[in-house]
Simulated scan of single mutants.
Amino acid sequence: MTRRAAILGTGSALPARRMSNHELAAQVDTSDEWIVERTGIRFRHVAGPDETTSTLATAAAQHALDAAGMDARDIDLIVLATATPDQTFPATATRVQAALGINDCVAFDVQAVCSGFLYALSVADSMIRSGAATNALVIGAETMTRILDWEDRNTCVLFGDGAGAIVLAARDGEQGVLSARLHADGRHNELLYVDGGVSTTGTIGKIRMKGREVFRHAVVNLANVLGETLEAAGLAPDDIDWLVPHQANARILDATARKLGLDPVKVVVTVDQHANTSAASVPLALDQAVRDGRIKKDDIVVLEAMGGGFTWGAAVVRY
């Protein structure tokens, strides 16, 4: 039998504060109509002073463990994707480990911005397939509002905070991750980046983006990697039950679905409620679709994302 990394449970967590476009328009020169027309976003969640990347990640992880019916002490691997860690070091994954009461396991962070969860999933899948791990928590968690320039309406309207998690476990059979493909092209750094860093400015910095160019690259790259990942799994677009994409912009979601010839009804969309939560967006959307009953056992689910770097990737999972 083939050893695979199967998803046993999903979970998510959102900050208590929910900010509407109308509330945001009172702070910056924008409007609900302008934001919805260009992005599809209507709300986002904003972390409060006592809410951090690690607290959101811990809550999402616990919900995933509960859904899997698993004790935290059974986890031997935590891979946490984030671009907004609690500290420069140690890894935020170790803070989650401690909060969950796990005394010893492999725990580390992955930084691939919006593609981070796909990178983390691929790493955990590889470790499980190789026998280096048996039960893993894969988490995407962000407090993106901490690095927003609230005077830049082109970026501050786009992002929100949150966390999503899955429990992966080694299983023999057909369920689990069927294929995953990752890419990066560092030549496009200036199109989406943060203008600060430990070794450059000694500051945290703020998000800067050239939205039109990012949109163009996203549609092409995502369609290509989806085709590549499906081919590796021996599947075609018609085999997809659900596409769970990175929730950056409703127009990107629509364009990607059209390129695949995929019925929009099969696309899980949460960008209107969560905005772009970077590495958290895919597991947040996955958890919502699992909990509302759309995604069921044996469904073919495709996950995809693209982020700053550029990085991009996709995975095909039999749920």
Rank of each mutant, 00 (worst) to 15 (best):
S179C: 05
D254K: 03
K206M: 13
T203E: 14
L243K: 06
T201C: 10
G227F: 09
D238Q: 14
N276L: 01
L262R: 01
N224D: 15
S199N: 14
R258I: 08
L226W: 04
A250M: 14
N276K: 09
I204W: 04
D238A: 15
N224T: 15
L253P: 08
T203G: 13
G234W: 07
N189P: 01
S199R: 15
G196I: 10
A255C: 02
V267G: 01
G261C: 07
S199C: 13
K259I: 08
N189Q: 12
V225E: 09
D239C: 10
A233V: 07
D272M: 10
N224R: 15
G197D: 03
L243F: 04
R251F: 05
M209N: 13
D241G: 08
I252N: 04
V194P: 00
E190M: 06
Y193Q: 09
R216M: 12
E228R: 13
R181V: 14
T200W: 07
T201H: 05
G197A: 13
G261Y: 08
T270H: 00
V269A: 11
A232W: 03
H183K: 15
A233H: 08
R181L: 10
V214A: 06
N276T: 04
E231C: 10
A255L: 07
E228H: 11
I204Y: 06
L243N: 05
A255N: 10
A275T: 14
D185E: 13
A232E: 04
K210D: 12
P237C: 08
D254A: 14
K259S: 06
R212P: 01
V244T: 10
E228F: 12
W242Q: 02
R187H: 13
N276C: 06
T270N: 13
L192I: 05
G202L: 09
V267F: 02
D239A: 14
H217R: 10
D263K: 02
G205L: 00
V198L: 02
L243I: 00
N276Y: 02
G234T: 03
V194S: 07
D241E: 09
L260F: 03
T256K: 01
L222G: 05
N249C: 08
Q273D: 03
L226K: 05
F215A: 04
K259V: 09
L192Y: 02
N276H: 10
H246M: 11
T256E: 04
T256Q: 11
